[in-house]
Design a protein around this nucleic acid. Structure first.
Lengths: 135, 135
DNA sequence: CGTGATTGTACATTGTATGTGTACAATAGA
DNA sequence: TCTATTGTACACATACAATGTACAATCACG
């Protein structure tokens, strides 16, 4: 299996850099299992063409995910999803930072007029999704 | 009431710009009610000194929150929290973007070694917090 | 009123990050 | 070996972030 072009969308007008949007999207697929070990990703030039960015931008994203341990990159064969070893034990402050970030995102959503109920729904949706896909 | 210096922490080494960290932190306080209407925020120079950034960086953050309708800024008197009118109805794609962002944050947390259970706990924690504080 | 202190604003400058263009290195396969 | 295909390296242009400096507005006080 490889990444379907439609599974990633890049918003060039966003204030989030393109390479990080790609990293975030791919990591989501990796965690959910939509991208499983031994799957291959498209060549940087191909995915870049699909997304409308330069191939070096995609290459940067691949490198970051490789450093995180998700991908193995080799020339000529391209990027391959690896069976990821258990990551290092997270520090307490990382968990705190995670919860803080959640609160910030929720606050921003409220700020945009999304209701508390809708936000709760979203939070539970993601929580439920963790049971099935993640692990 | 005004912002206590210890209630905001800025990580200058983060890839998130300082002014946005300030915006995110203050917005969280505004949504939670820790900053209520008629509260005054410290002068930009004072908060900047507390955080270790330039006062223009804080001024930029205040301006963004003022544009969002949270603050009223006047010279000499400084920034004041206003009773915020109901924001515009959010578009459907904003809700979708919210859930997508949640998934990205959760995936990143998993990537760092935070367990699915811990993430669930965090999500529910935030969801529960919405009932009380938010509105 | 006049004066000065205090507050936010405007804008030029500097450093850094982002995205791209181009040349190159490595490798699988004919 | 030769070649096409793949990722890499690095210089460049541009935009953004943070700052330095000067300024404008406004309140307090005489």
């Amino acid at each position: 299996m490889s990444v379907e072009p439609t599974s990633i969308a890049i918003d060039l007008s966003s204030d989030v850099p393109a390479y990080r949007q790609i990293v975030d999207a791919l990591r989501t697929h990796l965690v959910s299992g939509q991208l499983a070990p031994d799957d291959t990703l498209p060549p940087v030039r191909q995915l870049a063409a699909d997304l409308g960015v330069h191939f070096n931008t995609v290459a940067e994203a691949y490198r970051i995910l490789a450093e995180e341990g998700w991908l193995e990159i080799r020339r000529r064969t391209g990027a391959r999803v690896v069976d990821r070893r258990a990551p290092a034990k997270p520090a307490t402050h990382q968990k705190q930072a995670f919860v803080r970030r959640l609160n910030e995102i929720a606050a921003e959503a409220l700020s945009q007029g999304i209701s508390a109920e809708e936000i709760e729904t979203g939070l539970r949706l993601v929580a439920d999704g963790l049971r099935r896909g993640g692990g």
